[in-house]
Nucleic acid binder design. Sequence first.
DNA 1: CAATACACATACGCTGCGTATGTGAAATTT
DNA 2: AAATTTCACATACGCAGCGTATGTGTATTG
Lengths: 197, 197
Amino acid sequence: MATKRAQKMEETRAKLIRAAREAFATKGYAAASMDELTAEAGLTRGALYHNFGGKQGLMQAVVDQIDQEMVERMLAAQARAASRWEGLLEEGVAYIEMALEPEVQRIMLLDGPAVLGDPSQWPNQNACLLRTTQTIQALIDEGTVKPVDAEAAARLINGAALNAALWIAAAEEPHAVLPKAVEAFRQLATGLLKAEG
Amino acid sequence: MATKRAQKMEETRAKLIRAAREAFATKGYAAASMDELTAEAGLTRGALYHNFGGKQGLMQAVVDQIDQEMVERMLAAQARAASRWEGLLEEGVAYIEMALEPEVQRIMLLDGPAVLGDPSQWPNQNACLLRTTQTIQALIDEGTVKPVDAEAAARLINGAALNAALWIAAAEEPHAVLPKAVEAFRQLATGLLKAEG
DNA sequence: CAATACACATACGCTGCGTATGTGAAATTT
DNA sequence: AAATTTCACATACGCAGCGTATGTGTATTG
């Protein structure tokens, strides 16, 4: 059976992660005090060190959680698309849209890389990128896409989406520039296509 | 005349910026101690606060300096190219190559955004982006590029280059993936062209 | 040459992280 | 089921590092 202690511990971890998401998103990683953060969750720094090893470990846990949510949403976006090619585009668009959320922007795009290092090394980010790479490889195999290096193409596509996301998030009128970014993204992506449609 | 005091102050600023570039690049912003940093330059934290207002102000100065150097190199790369379109590509390639340098990667791509906020808001980055935007607009006007939003296209192009740079920098064999990234970048960029070459 | 300004050094306090140690409740043992 | 052990978390301590307030010597000004 799942012991009572294990259950309790999961609750504790969840509480800390929830408080950390809030604090990191609003104040930023550096300015977020662990005393305040844990107190907000009704705990102390003791619990934090026991469960996550330190401030950085907590950040890692937060990033992993958000990363997983993002991958799920990208998968859903791809699944809704008509063709494999459209799926790739929809995935990128979903990524762009997610960066409209301050939490994603601050934690995943700004502080995360600084604290944990290059995002392309994160486990989930790798999974997501791997899938994109496979999709592109499949598109190459079926003759839709030019024979470029699939991983390189996947990284550039993701990078373009990421920058579009940052642009939108920093804009005065995010929802005004969103369609422009999406359109440019789709146009740019066609550079990978073998023949113009 | 330029007073002796003003000269001395410039030297002091230069010494501090030089020491900070070194410290920020190797240890990272957060782990860089201002006491160590200033001692390395033969000064104390007093000089730092007087000249830059604080740790963040010093970071800003370092970023501005590197940013300016990067813009100059991109301009040089563009100037070497045969056509306006090739100039755009060469600029992106130059950007990718610069991120091979640990100093650029750590300070400009990782810590900079976390400390100072979104790079697209930095003064020099804006200047660079503005130029790219103008180049693309010119390419649209001359009929080389599809009629997309020039700023959006510029941001995506830069974003793709940036991500390629990060990929290369994080790779085990940077110089092995560089050509793949450059090739994919050029292919992707052709998505903006009106007709296939 | 006296007076002032100012660039930088020195000294202090406070915040915040990490660790070592304590504690009470759940789990295990016999 | 009573004693013992485990362990999740709290408490307490020490230290590093930032920001500020204040001191000092040299360059500038009248």
